[in-house]
Nucleic acid binder design. Structure first.
Lengths: 256, 256
DNA sequence: ATCATTATTCGACATTGTCGAATGTGCTTC
DNA sequence: GAAGCACATTCGACAATGTCGAATAATGAT
């Protein structure tokens, strides 16, 4: 680990959290002297990774991140393959669809299909959700034991709503059920009023590498069997395009 | 400039260009020994800025960029303000709309409204276009002389199509006209078959900080006056919300 | 205009990053 | 399965780079 790069990444993470920060504030957050922070920020600025806010002394994230992010999304085979199927799924269910992958102790939405009802909805691509509080995350936790192990190494689990599962034992029990049924349910655990159901996407090694979810109002729980069928179909189609010989995936082995 | 951070940023830029690269390839591009590159890449990996591709030895950009990018977009006041007006503009013109800002020698799309005809269109947020070859860019070059100066310091101008303006004198002449008319036109200079027209967005200092464009097939040139009127209206509305006392903006002063 | 706070610059030197050599890994061919 | 090759990764000596305290400059509020 190169310290200077670690520090630069931590500057970016601090700006991700607080959005606008001055040099002294960044120094306080990172426990570094202002002059050190200033050098780091200056280097990031030269590459457009950080900018100074238009009116004032504070700094914020910069446009290079958007360009790089666009390339990241473009590079994802699973996303390219899922575009069509998630689009179909959204049209046929009338629901919003999310495609998510593992991201540290969270899940990050790499593709979002808004509800096809013509209303304006916030774009969700790039949104992160705690893994244990989302259907997307629970699917990945269930089929990827290394993800669960990594998560449980970071107790305590965060509570987002009164419904969020925060006991490791309870979560593990829920995950066993996910694998048995082949899908995960989220019922107001991340966002009040919101429910979703998710299934895994498998790659050519039959391992779960992503998950697809449909999102619905909690009042519409439980989800209709027809929706679950369409969801499964979409995931199976994406998995097949990725070269998976089977669906659902196997539960990955835990490598020490 | 902190060398290690500069090198890390250059690794990201190399991966932005070529998408998948091995350590030796990165070393060749950056003119660094493999062991040095390996250390940099390992540091970036720890923060999710770079990942190893699922099957193989090569590296690609990582999901942290998506998360950071999402925050970048969220932090942009001009984008938040423009969302509603660009949405209206798209609905009323039936055309796709782009909101762009200056990005080194390019313009980067920070918000995209697809054509409201229900067809599937590629998302354009995060797309970069050479400034001199796009209506968005020409507006910003015209109203921001420092942008033009910076661009012309990097001859030669790249030719994208047979229509692209690559002579500095010709470009400067075109930009004088942009300011006279208050809008810029792009006619197959960036993409064959595609035309657009753009106007500036002003901030509280009456300086152009962004541009809004509508996009149409080249066959539909010239754009109808009614479309130009709606485009101006949208830009004026965004500018007013940003606190601009006037519209169009003033041509910024060139600071040495 | 004044003042307080914060940003930025500068340079000595400690420590960190670099990079060549050695070792390990993965892929291809037989 | 074994061998060979290309590339990735590890290791450690030491050169040079990054750090950080002090000084100076800039900014914003009054």
């Amino acid at each position: 680990m190169i310290q200077a790069i670690d520090r630069a990444a931590r500057v970016l993470a601090a700006l991700q959290g607080s959005r606008h920060l001055g040099i002294t504030e960044l120094g306080a957050i990172l426990d570094l002297p202002p002059s050190t922070v200033h050098g780091i920020v200056a280097s990031l600025r030269d590459h457009g990774l950080v900018v100074k806010e238009p009116h004032g002394q504070r700094y914020m994230l910069g446009p290079t991140l958007l360009q790089l992010s666009n390339v990241y999304l473009d590079t994802l085979d699973v996303r390219a393959r899922a575009m069509r199927w998630t689009g179909d799924l959204s049209e046929r269910t009338g629901l919003a669809v999310r495609l998510g992958v593992e991201f540290f102790d969270q899940v990050i939405v790499i593709h979002h299909e808004p509800r096809p009802d013509g209303t304006r909805q916030m774009p969700e691509t790039g949104v992160t959700i705690p893994a244990h509080a989302s259907a997307l995350g629970k699917v990945l936790l269930a089929y990827r034991p290394s993800f669960l192990q990594s998560l449980l190494g970071k107790v305590p689990l965060r509570s987002l709503t009164g419904e969020t599962i925060v006991e490791p034992v309870e979560l593990e029990k829920a995950l066993v059920e996910v694998v048995e049924k082949g899908y995960a349910v989220e019922d107001e655990e991340a966002v009040l009023g919101e429910a979703s159901i998710a299934v895994p996407v498998a790659d050519r090694d039959s391992e779960a590498i992503a998950a697809i979810a449909v999102v619905l109002p909690a009042s519409q729980q439980p989800v209709a069997d027809s929706v679950l069928t369409l969801l499964r179909e979409a995931a199976r189609n994406v998995s097949r395009e990725l070269g998976s010989p089977t669906w659902p995936p196997v539960v990955s082995e835990l490598d020490d």
